[in-house]
Design a protein around this nucleic acid. Structure first.
Length: 686
DNA sequence: CACCCAAACTTTTTT
DNA sequence: AGTTTGGGTG
C-alpha cells in the first residue's frame, strides 16, 4: 500500500504495455509482482492509462480476489485519472466491470440468463446453504443410519466443490484428497446428482455453479463472441490463486489472449485447498499462440532488506516457481527474530509485552498484527488480551454470517426473495414454536402446489398453537415478496417478525439483537433486496469490525488474523504464532510435496507482511483441541522443517523469558518426562 | 409430532 | 467444543 504515485521502470513498462496497439499487436501480459512491489499501484495506473487513452470504462474488465481490493483499485484509478485530467475531472469515467471472479460471473449470468435457459433472478447459495441442502438430500436418499458413517455434510460439499473447481472426476478426487471416503463413491455420485437437480428446481446457484455455468456459457460461441466484443481489455489480479475453471473461463472468452493482463505472485499462491493451482500462473506464458510478455517487479517498497533476505532464502529452497528475488532500498532494520518460548501462555505474554512496548515507542497497535495458521491458535492469546483489557479485532475464523441468528434473518429475506428456496423455508418455519419438520414440509408442499404464491399459505391448515404466528409470518412474506413496501422498510418488517422468534429460541437474545440491528444498518447501503443478498453472499464481512461504516478512528486495537486473511495487507510489526512443524507446514500437508510447497509459500506470505519488525515464535509445546483419543491437549512442536540453517541464519534467535546458559538442558528434561507419560498412556491403547 | 436430552464424533486455510 | 444422531416424553 505504498502511497507513492510515481512508478519505477518495470512498473511503467507494465502500465504502458500494448496500449494503443491493434489487437493483433498486443499479446497477453503476465506481471509477476512480488510482495510489496506496488502491485495495486501498477494495476491502478494501468487501468487509468487505459481510460486516458480513450478505452471506454465499460469495456474494461477487472477481476480481483476480494471486493476490498476491487474498491481500492477503482478508487485509486479514479484518483489518477482525475489528477492527470485536472480540470475535466468530473466527467472521468468510472470502471463498470470490477469484482471477484464469482461476482463478475454472477453479473454475466444474470445478463445472459435467458439465452442459456436460466432464471435471471436465481438465488446464490453460500457454503452453509449448500451444506444444508446436501444434508436434506442425504436423508431423503436414506444415506444415513448406516453401519459405518456417511461423510458429514461439510465433507460432502468439499468433495463436490473440488470435483467442480479442479474439473476432475469424483473417483480421482476422493482417491487423492479424501481417502477415507472411498467406500462411498457411488452414494456420493447419486447425492451430487440429486443436489444438482434440487438446485435447478429451486432456482439456486452455489459458488461453484457461478463459475461452472459461466464456463459453460463461455463455450457457447454466440455468447462468447458477444462477451468478447464487450471487453477490449481484461485485467486479472491475484492470478496465482485462480483454479482451472477460472482459467478456463478466461481462455474460452479470450482465446488469443489479446488484451489480457494477469498479475500475480506465484510465491503467494496459498489457496490450493480451494482447488487453486499455481500452475495457472507458472504456465501462463505458453498458453497462447503468441507467448505472453512477462514483466517482473522486484523492487519492494514495504520491508527492509533483512526481512526480504529471510523471505528470499526461504523461497530459494523451494522446488518450483519463478523465484524473483526481492530488493529493498532500506538496507537497515531490525533483524527478524526467532523467539523460543515454553508454551502458548509464554507466547501470549511475549506478544503482549512487545506490542505494548512498541506502542509506547509510537507504533500504535493497529499497525501491529498477530498472524497464525488456524483460527483457534489465537485462543490463548485472546484470553490473555481480554484479561488485560487490550482491545483486538480478529479477521478470519468465526464469521458474522455464521452466527445462527444472522442466518435466521437472512433466511427470511432469502425466502421472500425466492419462494422456491426450500432450505430457507424450512429454517424459517421451524423457528415458530409448534412447527417442526413435518408441518414445515406440509406447508412447503402446499406452497409448491399453488405456484409458490405466499398468499396461498393463508389457507394452509395449521394446528392452533402455531396459527397466529404463522399467519403473521405469511403476511410479512407476502408483503416483502411483492415489494409492496420499500426496501428500507422490508428489512425492518422482517426484523420485526423475527424478534419474537429470537427471544423464544435464544437465551442471550439481547446480545444477538445487536447483530440484527447491525444487519439492518448494513442493508441500507444496498439499493434493493436482490443486490443485498447477492453481495452479502459473495463477499461476506470478514469480521464484525467490517460492518460498522465508520470505525471509531480513535480506538486502537491489535489485529489478529489468519495468514490467509492477511493477504495483501501490511503492518509495521508482525508476530507469527506457532512456527513449528505441524503448523508451518501443517501436518495435513506432510505427505504431498506440492502441498508442502504451498505451506512454504504460506510462511512467505506471513513474513512479507512486515515492514519493520518480524517475530516468528516457536513454542516448545502448544495447545491443540483433542485430535486423538489419548494424549495431552498439548503438542510438542518440532522445529519447522522450513527453518533450515540457511534460513535461521537470517534470524536472531532469542529465548523468552531470558534464561541462563543451563536452562536449555532443563527444558529437554521437561520434554522427556512428558514423553514417558505419553508412552505410558499408550500402553492401554490397544 | 415437537421438543428435550444424552451420547458420539470430528476440525485448516475461504470466494 | 459444537454439531449430529438417537431415544424418550408429552
Amino acid at each position: 500500500m505504498s502511497k507513492t504515485f510515481s512508478l519505477n521502470e518495470q512498473q511503467q513498462h507494465a502500465v504502458e504495455y500494448g496500449i494503443g496497439d491493434t489487437p493483433e499487436q498486443r499479446p497477453p501480459l503476465l506481471v509477476i509482482a512480488g510482495a510489496g512491489t506496488g502491485k495495486t499501484n501498477t494495476l491502478a495506473h494501468r487501468s487509468a492509462q487505459l481510460l486516458l487513452s480513450g478505452v471506454s470504462a465499460d469495456s474494461i474488465l477487472l477481476m480481483t480476489f476480494a471486493r476490498r481490493a476491487a474498491t481500492e483499485l477503482a478508487l485509486r484509478a479514479q484518483q489518477i485519472v482525475e489528477q492527470k485530467l485536472k480540470k475535466q475531472a468530473k466527467g472521468a469515467a468510472r470502471l463498470q466491470w470490477i469484482g471477484t471472479f464469482h461476482s463478475v460471473s454472477a453479473k454475466l449470468l444474470r445478463e445472459h440468463a435467458v439465452s442459456v435457459g436460466l432464471e435471471p433472478d436465481f438465488t446464490i447459495m453460500d457454503r452453509n446453504d449448500s451444506a444444508d441442502m446436501l444434508d436434506v438430500l442425504r436423508h431423503e436418499l436414506g444415506l444415513t443410519n448406516t453401519e459405518h458413517r456417511f461423510p458429514k455434510k461439510k465433507t460432502c460439499l468439499d468433495i463436490y466443490s473440488r470435483c467442480v473447481n479442479a474439473q476432475s472426476p469424483l473417483s480421482e478426487v476422493v482417491g487423492q484428497h479424501f481417502p477415507n471416503c472411498q467406500d462411498w463413491v457411488d452414494e456420493l455420485k447419486s447425492l451430487f446428482a440429486a443436489y444438482a437437480k434440487s438446485k435447478a428446481d429451486q432456482a439456486c446457484l452455489d459458488y461453484d455453479d457461478l463459475l461452472l455455468y459461466c464456463y459453460h456459457m463461455a463455450r457457447v460461441p454466440q455468447i462468447a463472441s458477444k462477451i468478447r466484443e464487450q471487453f477490449d481489455y481484461v485485467l486479472v489480479d491475484e492470478y496465482q490463486d485462480t483454479n482451472l475453471l477460472q482459467a478456463g473461463i478466461l481462455k474460452a472468452l479470450f482465446p488469443t489472449g489479446s488484451g489480457l493482463t494477469v498479475v500475480g505472485d506465484d510465491a503467494q499462491s496459498i489457496y490450493g485447498f480451494r482447488a487453486a493451482t499455481v500452475d495457472n500462473i507458472l504456465d501462463f506464458p505458453n498458453q497462447f499462440e503468441t507467448p505472453a510478455k512477462v514483466i517482473s517487479l522486484k523492487q519492494n517498497y514495504r520491508s527492509h532488506q533483512g526481512i526480504l533476505d529471510l523471505a528470499n532464502t526461504l523461497l530459494s529452497e523451494s522446488s518450483e516457481g519463478f523465484k524473483v528475488e526481492l530488493v529493498s532500498d532500506t538496507k537497515q532494520g531490525v533483524k527478524p527474530t526467532l523467539v523460543h518460548v515454553d508454551d502458548d501462555l509464554k507466547q501470549a505474554e511475549y506478544i503482549i509485552e512487545r506490542v505494548l512496548a512498541a506502542r509506547e515507542e509510537g507504533t500504535e497497535m493497529k499497525r501491529q498484527a498477530v498472524l497464525f495458521r488456524t483460527g483457534y491458535h489465537s485462543d490463548r492469546l485472546e484470553v490473555e488480551l481480554t484479561r488485560r483489557n487490550i482491545p483486538f479485532v480478529k479477521h478470519g475464523g468465526l464469521r458474522f454470517l455464521e452466527a445462527s441468528h444472522v442466518k435466521d434473518l437472512l433466511a427470511i429475506l432469502r425466502w421472500t426473495d425466492n419462494p422456491k428456496h426450500k432450505i430457507s423455508a424450512f429454517r424459517v418455519m421451524k423457528l415458530l414454536s409448534g412447527v417442526g419438520p413435518k408441518i414445515a414440509a406440509n406447508a412447503f408442499e402446499h406452497l409448491a402446489q399453488h405456484q409458490f404464491r405466499f398468499q396461498s399459505l393463508e389457507e394452509f391448515r395449521i394446528p392452533q398453537p402455531a396459527k397466529a404466528n404463522f399467519m403473521a409470518l405469511v403476511e410479512t412474506l407476502t408483503q416483502v415478496h411483492n415489494d409492496s413496501i420499500a426496501w428500507t422498510q422490508q428489512v425492518t418488517a422482517v426484523a420485526k417478525i423475527y424478534q419474537p422468534m429470537l427471544e423464544l429460541n435464544y437465551d442471550d437474545h439481547f446480545v444477538r439483537w445487536g447483530d440484527v440491528e447491525q444487519l439492518m444498518q448494513l442493508s441500507q447501503q444496498f439499493p434493493n433486496r436482490e443486490r443485498f443478498l447477492t453481495e452479502l453472499t459473495l463477499d461476506p464481512p470478514q469480521s464484525s469490525g467490517d460492518l460498522s461504516d465508520n470505525p471509531k478512528i480513535d480506538d486502537d486495537f491489535l489485529i489478529l488474523s489468519t495468514v490467509h486473511s492477511a493477504k495483501g495487507q501490511e503492518w509495521a510489526n508482525v508476530y507469527v504464532l506457532n512456527v513449528a512443524d505441524g503448523n508451518f507446514p501443517n501436518e495435513y500437508a506432510a505427505g504431498d510435496p506440492r502441498a508442502l510447497e504451498e505451506e512454504r509459500r504460506l510462511l512467505n506470505v506471513a513474513i512479507t507482511r512486515a515492514k519493520h519488525e518480524l517475530h516468528l515464535i516457536q513454542p516448545l509445546r502448544y495447545w491443540v483441541p483433542e485430535q486423538q483419543r489419548f494424549g495431552d491437549k498439548h503438542v510438542f512442536g518440532a522445529k519447522s522443517r522450513f527453518l533450515t540453517d540457511k534460513v535461521v541464519a537470517c534470524l536472531d534467535e532469542v529465548h523468552y523469558p531470558k534464561r541462563g546458559p543451563n536452562q536449555g538442558e532443563i527444558n529437554s528434561a521437561n520434554k522427556a518426562i512428558a514423553d514417558i507419560r505419553q508412552s505410558i498412556l499408550r500402553m492401554w491403547n490397544n
